[in-house]
Simulated assay, not measured.
Amino acid sequence: MKAARIYGAKDIRIEDVDIPDPEDDQVQIKVKYCGICGSDLHAYLQGWGLPKEPHPITGRTLPITLGHEFSGQVVKLGKNVSNLKIGDKVAIEPVIACGECENCRKGQYNLCIKAQAKDGAGNFLGFSQDGGFAEYANVKSVFAHKLPAGMNYEIGALAEPTAVVYEALKRSRLRAGQDVAIMGAGPIGLLMALLARIAGANHIFIVDLSEVRLHKAEELGFINTINPGKEDAAETIKGVLPNGVDIAYEAAGVQATFDTALKVTKRGGTLQIVALFGRPITFDMTKDLIMQGINIITTICYNNSFPQVLGILNNNKDLFDKIITKKISLDQLVDQGIKEISADKQQVKILVSAED
């Protein structure tokens, strides 16, 4: 089968590889669509999250088939699989977990203790086990979630990034009527805004330097968009809400947006981290946090969320379809996918298909 294999930074090769039959607890998926994520971009540009030494659970090292935001159809069953049948349409939850450690037994399998790799390799398919930029993929059946009737594969491929923001929504404990600010209008920031609105948030401010991305937010119906290159975001938000917002979602992952998020969060409020940060940041623990009573909460991937996320997507298919801005073939993954999404702010979610 055809697959996009990553060998290291700036080294992705489209190759013909064999795929074994699924293991006893696995199903084999014919991949329909796989989305390009910001973490795929970091893997390509910097080699981020890739296993340079054997991963503690999978034992895998490079090369790896990239891709973790995917949907597809079940074509083969492991002998112990009873929850799925051939022909089922599914979205894949790409977490790698042992299922046995303390955190896994508590249901926090996204924080699997055994999945911690010394070299920082990610505990995802597409990083430490073969993923979805391929014609077929083998996945544990418990992590293959049936799509609701009538949902297409394109929307199904949005389940993984939507689960990321749904986890942030859970962790921040957003309640209907609260006010929020979202730092960043990239794919995660826009999905965060959509879920906040669906959850009943009152004011939703979106902050980004890109006019193109702010325009996309406006196309999705968000009116409180702010370009901090043209106006002071904190002053603008506090001009409407003098005490600030209840929750600020940091979906950009840089020092400047983190600083703004702190400034606009009301005393006693929550700063929810959604983004990954490419470099260390600084803040004054006493002045910025303790004296303001601000709680900083982090997330890593998700747990026990895919059924709810698929329900949200199914109830808002036309809305989430606007997040998909381009579809390409597997052969176009690097030049028209990964490189383009890093340079073209008009692109929100690019989907890749391995089908001819």
Rank of each mutant, 00 (worst) to 15 (best):
Q292I: 01
Q46K: 15
G126S: 07
V309K: 07
P187H: 15
S39R: 07
D356A: 13
I113A: 12
L351E: 06
N243I: 14
P161V: 13
A121S: 11
S353C: 03
L220G: 10
N315P: 11
V17Q: 03
I223S: 13
P51T: 06
E340H: 03
R175D: 05
G253T: 05
D25W: 08
E15I: 07
A181R: 00
Q73M: 13
T282Q: 08
I57V: 13
A117D: 00
G78N: 04
T257N: 12
I324Q: 06
A97L: 03
H145N: 08
R213E: 03
I223E: 15
A168N: 05
G150K: 02
G87V: 07
Y153V: 06
K85Q: 06
P242S: 05
I204C: 08
G177C: 05
M1V: 14
M1L: 15
A121M: 08
I290Y: 15
Y7H: 07
K263G: 11
K118G: 08
R175A: 10
R171W: 11
A196R: 09
I281V: 12
Q26I: 13
G278N: 00
Y109M: 02
G177I: 01
A4C: 02
N314Y: 06
D232E: 03
I64R: 02
M183V: 09
E160P: 02
I223H: 07
G38Q: 00
P63H: 12
K106N: 04
L271G: 12
I155C: 12
K287M: 00
K85M: 07
R105Y: 07
N316G: 00
F143N: 08
L271N: 11
A261C: 15
F70G: 09
P148G: 09
E23V: 04
D40P: 09
Q129D: 14
T265V: 14
A43S: 15
D179N: 15
E250I: 15
K326T: 09
G184F: 01
Q308S: 14
R175M: 11
R267M: 07
E235A: 15
I338D: 01
L289Y: 03
D179G: 05
A252K: 05
A9S: 04
G253I: 04
Q346L: 01
A3H: 09
F306V: 05
S329F: 14
D16Y: 05
A137E: 12
V207E: 11
N315E: 09
D18V: 04
K322M: 11
P56Y: 02
V274C: 08
G269F: 02
N224H: 13
K322A: 01
C98E: 00
A256W: 09
D344P: 02
P56Q: 05
T65P: 00
N316F: 04
C101L: 08
L62Y: 09
Q26K: 10
Q272H: 13
N315F: 08
A163G: 04
F283P: 04
F306A: 12
I29Y: 10
T325S: 14
D232Q: 12
D246A: 12
D246L: 09
Q347W: 02
H215W: 10
K140W: 14
D88S: 10
L313P: 08
K10C: 02
L214V: 01
S305D: 06
F133D: 02
N315S: 10
M151L: 05
Q73C: 06
